[in-house]
Structure formats: structure tokens, C-alpha cells
Amino acid sequence: MNAGFVLTKLLRCAATLFLALTFVFVVLRLSGDPVERMLPDDTPPEVQERYREMWGLDRSLPEQFVGYLRSVVTGDLGFSFRDGREATEVVMERVPATLTLASLALALMLGVGIPAGIFAALNKDTWLDRVTMGATVLGYSVPNFFLGILLIMLFSMTLRWLPSSGSGSWQHLVMPVVTYGTAYAGTVARFTRSSMLEVLGQPFMRTAWAKGVRWRARVLGHALPNAAIPLVTVMGIRIGAMIGGATVIETVFGYPGVGSLLVNSVAQRDLAVVQVIVLLIAFTMVIVNLCVDLAYTLLDPRVAALEARGGAK
């Protein structure tokens, strides 16, 4: 991997981030006057004016934008309207819980989805394939909240094995992780299957067969790495979205992560907090995309060659 290539990628990341920041700024300003929406309707105009001054809303838009960018860079993103603490602090204390949930769900998703996809591909058009693919349809057609509620009814209310909400112990994690993980395990399985089938039909797989490579080594050594390349892209997007928070899952299970914080903050118009979360999600997506791009060049010599030859596309 050459330095020029990495540099181009980093520059593109920076550009994307800048766009995301601008977008957040524009959307939050377009969505109406925050002062009017946050203060009670009968607030006297002088008081409203004081607030505008305090939040810098009386200045021109370009001035506001520069001030906003400065505050993003310095991490000084204002205070939570609800409890008066710094918005970043309010969000950051939720991050570990979300990361725990997301990484466990991710492990489940890949750990179930990839083997299931390989299995289905190797048994293409047999009943094993059909049963596996049938299960994946269930996985992604049942809405998250519905599966969550079913699990709560069964394991919390009927069997009383698991707590229905909260966090703090592994028992609290079981149902959110299962719900979250299985939601996309089906998608992963389907994608793995089609990617595998495509590779299994490639001429180089026949070469390996004709060369005397055993079945296992052909599947794991030759087919899987090739099938993994398109998977990385899809997974990258998925992973980015997952780390950004699971609003539905966290809300259903009353799990104190970034996702449920976002829902609450929107409901209570805690704009500073909403802004921090949106920025956090944007950052995560951009960073994950960068990682995917870099992983690509490590995985696929063809991409590396392309980049080396013509610089970035």
C-alpha cells in the first residue's frame, strides 16, 4: 500500500466529514428556531432575545458556521438542556454500553451468518439450502421490535429467566444481542451464499480441483477469501450503522446506550445532545468506511494494483 493512496483516502475522509458537519448544521438550523422550540410559548420576548445572544443565534449564518466548526474541533459542543452537563459527556458515558451491545451482536451476526451462508452455498438447491435460506427470510422479515417483544414475553414474563430491561449484567445483554444479531445474520447469510456461489463457479476453482487440492482446502483456502471481498463492503456499512446505535433495540429493552439516548433527546428537544450523537454517527461511518477501503487493498491485490497504477479513482 503506498503512502499517496492512504493520503488520498484520508483527504477524502476529511472532505466527507466536512460535508457531514455542514449537513448537520444546515438541518438543525433549518428545522426551526431552537429558542422558540425549546422555551415555553409564553416566554417574554426579552428573555428569548437573551437566549439567542447566549447561543449565538443573533449572529449571521457564516459567523455561526465558523463558530460551530470551532466548537466541533475543540469538542465544546454545548450543554444538555436537560441536566446542564456537557453534551459530549452525556453522550460519551453511553458509548461503552452501545459498543458492548454492538460488538456482541456483530460477533453473533458474523458467527451465524457466514457459516450458514457457506453451508447453504455448498448444498445449493438441496433441502438443506432451502431450510437455511427460509430461516434467513424469517431473520430479516420479522421486525426488530416485534422479535424483541416476543422474547420479552417468553423469557421475561412467562419463564422469568431474563430481565426485560436495563443493563449491568450479562443477563441484560442476552435478549438485545440476540435480537440485534439475528436481525442481520440473515442478510449476512444470504450475501455470503451468493458471493460463495459466484466464486465456486469461477474457473480458478476448477483449476484447484484439477490440481488435486482437497475439497476442504478448496472451500476454505481458495473460495472463502475470494468470497470475503464483496462481503467486506456490505459488512462495513452494516458495522458503521451498528456502532452508531440501535435505537429500536435499545428502546424496546430499555438499554441505556446511545440509541435510546438519541430517542429521548429528540423527544425532549435536547438539541445539543442530538447534535453530538449525529456527529458521532457521522464520524463512525466515515472511519469505518476508511477501514473498509484500507482492508480492501490488503485483501485484494487487484485493487492495490489499480490504486498504484492510476492513483485514486
Binding site: 469461477q202 474457473p203 480458478f204 476448477r206 483449476t207 484447484a208 480441483w209 484439477a210 490440481k211 488435486g212 487440492v213 482437497r214 475439497w215 481458495h222 477469501p225 475470494n226 485483501l299 485484494d300 491485490p301 487487484r302
Partner: peptide
């Protein structure tokens, strides 16, 4: 059986194909 043929393929008889580029593993 296919598994038993792995001993013969590539050892007693080898094969080459029409499109050499796609006949090699790109990775």
C-alpha cells in the same frame, strides 16, 4: 470416489485451460 481422485489429479495427469487469467486464483 472424488476424494480418492485428488491423489491422481495434478500428479499423474494435469490440466491447463483456455483462459489462463481466470484460471489462476486472483488473490
Amino acid at each position: 470416489p472424488d476424494a480418492a481422485l485428488d491423489e491422481i489429479r495434478g500428479r499423474d495427469a494435469a490440466m491447463i485451460f483456455q483462459n489462463p487469467m481466470s484460471a489462476l486464483n486472483p488473490l
